[in-house]
Computed example of a mutant assay.
Amino acid sequence: MTQNAQKPMSQKTTPTRPYQPFLLRVLHGITALCLIAALLTAYWTYDTYDGRWGGIPLPKFPDIEGIHGTFGLWTLLIFPALVVYACRPGQRRLVQPDTFKKLAQVGKPIWWYTLNRITNTFALLALTFALFSGKMMGSSWLPAGELSHAWYYAHLISWVVMVLSLALHLLMNAKVGGAPLLLSMLTWRFRDKDSPAHWPNHLSQWWVVTQQGAWQGWFQPMTAMIALEISILVSLVAAWIIPLFKP
């Protein structure tokens, strides 16, 4: 018998499961949980204090606004770390310099991958808009029945945009990777080199090189991806600062 004929049938190759970096899964997972909780409590807040455009018969719960604000705050605290990761180690998952060129290849696999990158980027921008508009609101507006503020309308619009972007994000990832890709973001397994045990060492090394002046080249060269990162981070910082000067 030949050597090929002696190979057992059990040696058939199996499809490789997609692997996501563990840090990405942690940042993405925490942000997603806080965001979904914020979206749900945001609707309950609208239903309690507004409801002008219809709703479902939820119990009136005046404290829900504070709960929504808490989830929004948690999202705002973790989101910058996800932005930095997405725009640096994970930038291949976002829009690329040749995005418009690849969009011309309608129906081909690269077209779907490009659409997926666009929806991923859109989700980051939508969440930035939601967090910024939420911070611009006054905590006393809704309890006082003040429903005509521009920032309140902006925050309502951001809720709709965020829900749509989240749906597109899930649908496009399901399209390009199917269930294996979606499930790869939910598993807690990680490779040895990806272990959280290495994170303190990585952080200390980063701090050493930062002290040595590496931060001066943090935003060089100035690419579209770096510009996206800066614009989002500046918006998030402004969301903290601007309310301090509001009357």
Rank of each mutant, 00 (worst) to 15 (best):
M1K: 06
T2K: 10
N4Y: 11
A5Y: 04
Q6A: 12
M9R: 12
S10L: 06
K12R: 12
K12W: 03
Q20L: 06
F22T: 03
L23G: 08
L24E: 09
L24A: 15
L24T: 12
R25E: 04
R25K: 14
V26N: 03
V26K: 03
L27G: 04
H28T: 10
I30L: 15
T31G: 12
L33S: 05
C34P: 01
L35M: 15
I36N: 09
L39R: 09
T41M: 08
A42Q: 03
A42L: 06
W44V: 05
D47F: 02
Y49H: 08
D50N: 09
G51P: 03
W53S: 11
W53D: 07
W53L: 13
G54E: 09
G55F: 03
P57H: 03
E65P: 01
G66F: 08
H68R: 14
H68D: 03
F71W: 15
G72W: 07
L73P: 00
L73Q: 06
W74L: 14
W74T: 00
T75I: 00
L76N: 01
L76T: 00
R93N: 04
L94W: 05
V95Y: 01
D98I: 00
T99Y: 01
T99M: 03
T99V: 03
T99R: 00
F100H: 02
F100C: 01
K102C: 02
K102M: 13
Q105A: 12
K108A: 13
T119Y: 11
A123R: 12
L127Q: 12
T128V: 14
F129G: 08
L131Q: 04
S133L: 10
S133F: 11
G134I: 08
K135F: 15
M136H: 11
M137Y: 03
M137F: 02
G138Q: 14
G138Y: 13
G138M: 13
S139H: 13
S139D: 14
S139T: 14
W141M: 15
L142P: 01
E146D: 15
E146Y: 14
L147G: 14
S148T: 15
S148I: 11
H149W: 11
H149K: 15
A150P: 04
W151G: 02
Y152Q: 12
Y152S: 11
Y152R: 14
A154R: 07
H155Y: 13
V160F: 10
L164E: 05
L164D: 05
L164H: 01
L166Q: 10
L166I: 09
A167K: 03
A167C: 07
A167L: 13
L168Y: 06
V176Q: 07
V176T: 14
A179W: 13
A179G: 01
L183K: 13
F190H: 15
S195V: 02
S195F: 04
A197M: 07
N201S: 09
Q205Y: 02
W206V: 06
W207C: 10
V208Y: 04
T210N: 08
T210H: 05
Q216H: 10
G217L: 02
Q220R: 11
L228Y: 00
I230P: 00
S231Y: 00
S231F: 00
V234D: 02
V234W: 06
S235M: 14
V237Y: 02
V237K: 01
W240T: 05
I242K: 10
F245Q: 09
K246M: 14
